[in-house]
Simulated assay, not measured.
Amino acid sequence: MLVTLDAPYVDTRAADLSLALGDAERPALHVLDLDLPAGLRLRLRLLGASHQVVLRAVGAELTETVACLPGRPPELPATLLDAANGYRFAATVLRPPPGELRDRVGALRAELAGDPYALVGVFPGDVDAVTALAVRPDPPGGTVGWHTWHAYPQTNELVLTETAVVL
Rank of each mutant, 00 (worst) to 15 (best):
E64T: 15
A113L: 05
L2T: 01
A38F: 10
L133K: 01
A83F: 11
L19V: 04
P98E: 09
D82I: 14
L167S: 04
D126P: 02
A107Q: 10
A107N: 07
L17C: 01
A83N: 10
L158N: 02
L34R: 04
L158E: 06
G48N: 09
L69Y: 00
D82N: 12
F89N: 02
W149C: 05
H30W: 06
L32T: 03
P124W: 08
V54H: 09
D16H: 01
D35K: 12
L76Q: 07
T63H: 05
V166G: 11
R43I: 09
V166Y: 11
P116R: 03
A132P: 05
V31Y: 03
V120P: 01
D103W: 09
T12L: 12
A129C: 11
S50K: 05
W146I: 08
T12S: 11
L42R: 01
T131V: 15
E75R: 15
A132W: 06
L133Q: 03
R102G: 07
A38N: 13
L94Y: 13
Y152C: 11
V159A: 10
C68G: 13
Y117N: 09
L101D: 01
L108N: 00
L32N: 01
P97F: 06
L133I: 14
A15N: 03
W149Q: 09
L5R: 08
V3G: 01
T4N: 14
F89I: 05
D16K: 00
T161L: 10
P140D: 08
L160S: 10
E75M: 14
D33Q: 12
V10K: 07
E75P: 07
